[in-house]
Computed example of a mutant assay.
Amino acid sequence: MADTAIFDVDGTLVDTNYQHALAWYQAFRRFDITLPVWRLHRAIGMGGDQLVPHVAGDDVEQRLGEDLRQAWEEEFDGMIDSVAPFEGARELLAEVKDRGFRLVLASSGKAKHVDRFLDLVGGKDIADAWTTSEDAEASKPAPDLVQVALEKVEGKDAVMIGDSTWDAVAAGRAGIPTIAVRTGGFSAEELTEAGAIAVVESLTDLRDGLDDTPLARPGR
């Protein structure tokens, strides 16, 4: 039985994936590199250190990696006011907490962004812990962040709730199952192939069906 729920933040609790994709698109364009937005979107969920070589190759990473990440941050900062929480985010977190699970909000984002997003969902008032990019040496799809999230609350068994294929891969490498939500724009097939044990359309659907997941009430 799980004792800990680890929630991804970007794309799962708050609607950011397309802003991230467009910010990366504009960042690459600053350096005369034009990449299809759909390809960038499919890499969202990776850490920036992983994303640049994944979409543009090792040579671009070596030459421009740090500059591209700085450009992405500037572009994303200009879009952050458009970010909103997904319907039912706060209610889902409250329901999971009420069921007695330890609650960790796991993000590999920059601390200033994570603070903003946690405020949008009231996360600081309800979560037992949260993470930022400063908490793990390697970003997703490496398992480090998921492992750190579990360690922060001294959990024994966890379930991950995420929106991207990279969430499922990272959690799988940590030996943790993932419930995937389609809020990030990935297909059910992509998420299942990445290792998700279940895929739901929305946070409200997940809340309605919690008793059919590892987050069921004790005794169910």
Rank of each mutant, 00 (worst) to 15 (best):
S107F: 00
D98E: 14
I80G: 02
G78M: 08
M79N: 03
G100W: 02
S108C: 06
G78K: 13
H113M: 01
H113Y: 12
E74N: 11
G88M: 06
M79W: 09
L92Q: 06
V114S: 02
D98H: 14
A106I: 05
P85G: 08
L93G: 01
L105N: 03
E91N: 09
D115T: 13
S82M: 13
V104H: 01
F76Y: 15
S107M: 01
G100C: 08
D77F: 10
K112Q: 12
E74R: 14
L103N: 01
L103V: 03
D98R: 15
L93S: 01
A94V: 09
R102M: 06
H113N: 13
H113I: 04
L93K: 06
S108I: 08
F86R: 04
S108K: 07
R99M: 09
G88F: 02
A84R: 15
I80M: 13
M79Y: 13
G100Y: 09
E87C: 04
G88C: 05
S82V: 05
G100R: 08
S107Q: 06
E75S: 02
E74D: 13
K110Y: 13
K110D: 09
D81I: 10
E91I: 03
L93T: 00
A84M: 13
A111Q: 11
V104C: 00
V104Q: 00
I80K: 12
A94G: 08
A106D: 08
D81R: 15
F101C: 09
K110W: 12
A89Q: 04
R90Q: 11
D115V: 04
F76W: 09
F86I: 05
L103F: 04
L93D: 00
A89C: 08
R99W: 05
S108T: 12
L93A: 04
L103A: 02
E91D: 14
E73C: 11
E91C: 10
D77H: 13
V83H: 07
D81T: 14
D98T: 12
A84W: 10
L103D: 03
R99Y: 09
A84N: 12
E91Y: 10
H113F: 12
E95A: 14
K97P: 03
A89F: 04
E73V: 12
E91T: 10
D98W: 10
L92A: 09
G88I: 04
S82K: 14
L105S: 07
H113S: 07
R102I: 02
S108R: 05
E87D: 14
K110R: 15
E95I: 05
S82H: 14
E87R: 07
D115L: 12
E87G: 07
S107H: 01
I80E: 12
E95W: 01
A89D: 00
K110C: 02
K112V: 15
S107D: 02
R102A: 10
G88R: 00
R90D: 00
E95V: 08
S108Q: 11
A111N: 08
F76L: 12
L93Q: 02
F76T: 00
A106K: 01
D81Q: 15
S82A: 15
V104A: 01
H113A: 01
R90E: 10
S108A: 15
H113V: 00
L105T: 05
H113P: 00
G78A: 13
F86C: 06
V96L: 03
A89V: 02
G88S: 01
L103G: 07
A111G: 09
